[in-house]
Design a protein around this nucleic acid. Structure first.
Length: 729
DNA sequence: CTCCAGATTATTTTT
DNA sequence: TAATCTGGAG
């Protein structure tokens, strides 16, 4: 067996990370400083030199893909398989624990996992039943609130106890709490957990159940957590409960890359690590092995503007390199097509498309790039959005699988009960629902005894019984037949592919194709699973996998393509050439996140994360005019650009307006506007670029109003009031 | 029960 | 703008 040359492969600090295995360690790892490598070598060191059994090691990564890559690289390094190592995301590790420990929990081991859409449809039902006005109690806010409380380990009963402490003027909180309570009941009734529940129940279980905790403390002798700056309170508790006795915990993170506070992540976890685990050894990795100096200079200058951080500077030995380019364009279409042109130039020079990424703040921005790249005949793939699994036909089919696996999952059953249409309409379904409710049985059971359900038409009764029998026949296969065969059987008997193919609508035809592709994806999963576990996967192996699958996990490496993704999704990746688009006020920083200094700093970190993805070439751009939904906006270059010294960029395309921009930047909180004006139709107004115009229509008030203007120059545009003046300059 | 068309409404980031 | 919802006709 080959010896591993730790000293040769690692720098001094990295070596320290690898070899300090006995106490708590905090690794503050700058972008591109080789933290993944350190984690891999640390695993190798534990397994090979310290003879630790693989199942005694827990490594938590940020994505499933990162977990897979870590495992692959480790096996290559060690030259032996390490399958029983626990590597995965918090969600996948926890769902595994919950399935194992279901005897101690209020749900079965085959619980369903509910995504956002499922969550919303449960909420919708509650709103309807309770007659709640969604204008008064916005659903999105409730959904958010539930998530926030769960991340802080608070279930409805915990809130109930503290209700009196809160002042509840509008009665909003009482309403929220009622909804939260019903929501949680509904989920339990369906034997379903949402994403946050997976963490919450694991944390609570470890906190309150001594024997279970002892079991996992003993099992996970060594714990490593990547991206620790993005862990929330629930995740903190999980780690803490496991490691609080032995303290053999190694966390890796970078406060400058914390970008998930909206998900409850708290920088506290990294800043107070030393309080939680006394005797911590802190190690800093600052040498960057990824980017040229020119890029790092920009990155350092950006992040230096943040106040709340551990001061540090990235440096590398990769040479000065090309200065980043800053370009401004007329509008978002020109921005996209010019980026496509640049990509073609890079391609002509021989750059692999896989080494090019286009980054943006919001998912909606991807559309323009898709169009421009298509026009330029450049293949691309969107990383991160779960396009495939969000398609209706795929979700429907997954609904079948969920209903077969978990007969309590009423959500899933309702989704498919009349899909494809089989003559079981709303009226019949409502009869079933009320019968199920009265008798405290699941919808599935109600269907089974359709003969006893009052109110049903004879035709409906027959159809329900037939469908119920069909489901029952598939259910018999669930535990005995490999998932791939089950999928094929169900798909064939439903005859969905033929059904969609019969249509003339190209949309429907695409659905047929997608279903075929779905089968391919299941068979890919089955193949990998079989080689890892030496048996074919059952439905119960597949469902948790798809539910926790993220868009980040499924990029087809084989295809040469430019990667499009949001700034959030680019974390942990690197590319030779990176384009960051849309550096405009209200887009980056985003208008929803510029209220407080904290929010602005997080947006700035987002920009920083994007910049530090680039190895050799970096292009930053903004549009002077942007179209959003049905209106037009004149934009201002982002604060994050204005605050930078121009020398950091290659000069060519800089808008002269920028260089003259003031260095000390405006106060953040919404500026008091002298222009809380009153607009009226027919009024004459002036615009910086378009000149004189007349208001044709007013929507809203003051500077927030959207105005339709006819300009003297002949142009018609919808413009925000804040961009207009009542007097000429 | 099903289908279609017009109305409505939501627009940050994600496991 | 585009995706989803609702209501009414067949």
């Amino acid at each position: 067996m080959q010896e591993i040359l730790y000293e040769r492969e690692l720098n001094e600090r990295q070596l320290e990370v690898v070899q300090s295995v006995d106490g708590p360690i905090l690794v503050l790892a700058g972008a591109g400083s080789g933290k993944t490598k350190s984690i891999i070598y640390r695993c190798a060191y534990l397994l090979k030199e310290k003879r630790v059994a693989p199942w005694n090691i827990l490594v938590v990564t940020f994505t499933n893909k990162a977990a897979r890559e870590l495992q692959e690289r480790l096996e290559k390094l060690l030259e032996f398989p390490t399958r029983s190592l626990w590597v995965g995301t918090f969600h996948s590790v926890c769902s595994r624990i919950l399935r194992q420990e279901s005897a101690n929990l209020p749900f079965h081991s085959n619980f369903s996992i509910y995504d956002d859409d499922n969550q919303l449809s449960v909420l919708k039902k509650i709103y309807k039943e309770q007659n709640i006005d969604k204008a008064k109690v916005p659903m999105g806010r409730v959904q958010n609130g539930i998530s926030r409380y769960k991340n802080r380990l608070m279930l409805p009963e915990d809130l109930q106890a503290r209700k009196d402490e809160l002042d509840d003027k509008e009665g909003y909180f009482s309403k929220f709490l009622k909804i939260y309570t019903l929501y949680q009941q509904q989920l339990l009734l369906n034997q379903a957990l949402d994403f946050d529940d997976i963490l919450l129940y694991t944390a609570k279980l470890l906190q309150t159940n001594e024997p279970v905790r002892a079991k996992y403390q003993k099992l996970f002798q060594y714990v490593m957590i990547d991206e620790y700056q993005d862990t929330n309170q629930a995740q903190f508790q999980i780690v803490y409960q496991i490691a609080r006795e032995h303290h053999r915990v190694c966390v890796v993170g970078d406060d400058d890359q914390a970008i998930y506070s909206f998900r409850g992540a708290s920088i506290r976890n990294i800043l107070e690590f030393e309080k939680d685990y006394p005797g911590v050894r802190s190690i800093r990795l600052e040498q960057n092995y990824r980017s040229t100096t020119a890029i790092l200079e920009l990155a350092n200058a950006i992040i230096k503007q943040n106040r709340m951080r551990h001061p540090k500077e990235l440096w590398s030995e990769l040479g000065q390199g090309e200065k980043p380019r800053l370009c401004s364009y007329k509008d978002e279409n020109e921005e996209a097509s010019r980026i496509a042109e640049e990509i073609n130039i890079l391609r002509a020079k021989g750059t692999s498309l896989n080494q090019i990424a286009v980054l943006y703040r919001t998912n909606a921005q991807s559309r323009v790039f898709e169009y421009a790249l298509m026009q330029a005949r450049i293949p691309y793939s969107i990383v991160g959005s779960l396009y495939f699994y969000q398609r209706k036909e795929i979700k429907d089919f997954l609904g079948y699988l969920a209903a077969l696996s978990n007969s309590s999952d009423n959500e899933a059953l309702l989704r498919i009960i009349n899909e494809p249409p089989r003559g079981i309409g709303t009226t019949s379904v409502n009869h079933l629902i009320s019968y199920a409710g009265k008798n405290r049985i699941s919808l599935y059971q109600a269907m089974h005894s359709a003969d006893e359900v009052p109110g049903l038409q004879t035709a409906a009764r027959t159809k329900i019984s037939a469908f119920s029998a069909k489901l029952e026949s598939w259910r018999k296969l669930v535990h005995s037949v490999p998932v791939l065969d089950l999928v094929k059987t169900v798909l064939e008997e439903l005859d969905l592919v033929a059904l969609y193919n019969a249509s003339k609508d190209p949309k429907e035809l695409a659905r047929a194709e997608n279903l075929v592709e779905f089968v391919t994806s299941v068979s890919e999963f089955a193949e990998r699973f079989t080689s890892e576990n030496e048996r074919a996967p059952l439905l119960a192996d597949y469902l948790p996998f798809v539910a926790l699958q993220t868009g980040l996990d499924q990029v087809r490496e084989s295809m040469e393509s430019v990667r499009l993704m949001t700034l959030h999704n680019c974390k942990g990746l690197e590319f030779d050439s990176v384009f960051i688009a849309g550096l405009e006020e209200e887009l980056l920083p985003h208008r929803m996140s510029m209220g407080t200094r904290e929010e602005i700093e997080e947006e700035r970190r987002l920009f920083y994360v994007g910049v530090t993805r680039a190895r050799k070439r970096l292009f930053i751009s903004y549009a002077k005019f942007r179209r959003l939904y049905d209106s037009f906006y004149f934009t201002k270059p982002s604060l994050f650009i204005q605050e930078l010294e121009p020398y950091l960029f290659a000069g060519e395309d800089i808008d002269p307006g920028i260089q003259a921009a003031p260095r000390r930047v405006p106060k953040i909180k919404h500026k008091i506007r002298e222009d809380q004006k009153f607009w009226r139709i027919g009024q004459t107004v002036y615009h910086k670029e378009y000149g004189k115009g007349m208001i044709l229509n007013v929507d809203g008030e003051g500077s927030d109003a959207t105005l339709t203007i006819s300009f003297a120059a002949g142009k018609l545009a919808k413009i925000k009031g804040s961009f207009l003046q009542t007097e000429p300059d």
